[in-house]
Design a protein around this nucleic acid. Sequence first.
DNA 1: AGGGTAACAGACTTATAGGTCTGTTTATAG
DNA 2: CTATAAACAGACCTATAAGTCTGTTACCCT
Lengths: 204, 204
Amino acid sequence: MDKQLKRMATMQRIQTTGLEIFYQKGYHNTSIDDILKELRLSKGAFYYHFQSKEEFFISIVQNLLFRKVYSSLIEPIEGEEDPLNKIAACFDNALETAEHNFLDYGFVLSNFITEFNGKNPDIMNYLQDILKVWEVNLVTALQKGKTDGYVNRHIDSEAVATYLISSYIGIRTLMVEGNGKMLRYKYIQQLRHYFKLIEHKEPA
Amino acid sequence: MDKQLKRMATMQRIQTTGLEIFYQKGYHNTSIDDILKELRLSKGAFYYHFQSKEEFFISIVQNLLFRKVYSSLIEPIEGEEDPLNKIAACFDNALETAEHNFLDYGFVLSNFITEFNGKNPDIMNYLQDILKVWEVNLVTALQKGKTDGYVNRHIDSEAVATYLISSYIGIRTLMVEGNGKMLRYKYIQQLRHYFKLIEHKEPA
DNA sequence: AGGGTAACAGACTTATAGGTCTGTTTATAG
DNA sequence: CTATAAACAGACCTATAAGTCTGTTACCCT
């Protein structure tokens, strides 16, 4: 029974550093040997646990990426009151970790989407699924915000959700250059500015 | 003298279809042979005109990408009055061509930025330069809008510009899946919504 | 303790892709 | 018309990377 644990442990190890290197260098630009060299493991070990590079990547998407996106960008908003402030704080928080060159999973996601778009429909589906979960959750939060009196009832929740996701993905694409702190500040500023429009206005 | 023309013509041919295929399949995932096969040309022809794959790509960025981004996203706004409406119309127009699966150069740009980030600083600089020109132009247009009475004087033009670019890049990343028409509609709707905030308010 | 299997090592195979090199065509100049 | 160089063809070289296969180590079970 201990072997099961060992198996899981090494698979986790390979997947974790695999995601890191895929993120840094891109999928097509990283070889299995790159990952194995970092781990001081052999080809035999890798292909004992995974069938192929593609299957390996998909396992990363499902096991790591999905859960991380969920815990960093979805869960913090779920069920909370005052969704707009929660969303702004959550985005700000995620962008802060991104500043310090840590893995920002929302961005990793869009990164891979651009890389696999039109090339691998199979992988694309898994990636798009995560986006959909994210979007659905934002819509739900906004709708709940309406009934709780935090969000203007006349806004189109779905449109706002896609607008939020797109702006987030975009700002992260721009932040690659290094002046992240300034970009983050400007972005959050405009985001909160935008939120003023869709807040619930108390009738005078 | 006619040879010069022929030289330019074939170089243009290779570059044009090169950009198309690089856009479709990504830089690392397309081989020189892919491009040459499409053109029914030989390795000899290619390496007679270009030193390497990388130098070839850079020439595409400088010759094609820069000019196309300029003509599709920068020039239409330049010097116009009522910049907000101009920007919205310009973005809407660019997104419409993107719907029909044509090359949308603003997106191609961000596409390559994500692909080369952290991998090739040399190419990254050329790509970032285009972004900077875009941003500077937006800032200029917004500032001019202030003096012309179209834009609220209290807004931070630079922050708005980065916010605009990031949202545009983001929405294009999302549009890869196919439901482009709906996404475009939602995006432009929210964009115009956002613009109401930074419009010039007539004093009552 | 020892047999058996899971877990891993690493040499090998094969395909692909960037780049080279030599030969051939084409076209302009004198 | 011919010499000469530009423009191109395509076989070849070489490095890399995905995947295979055989051998070896480590651990569990009886």
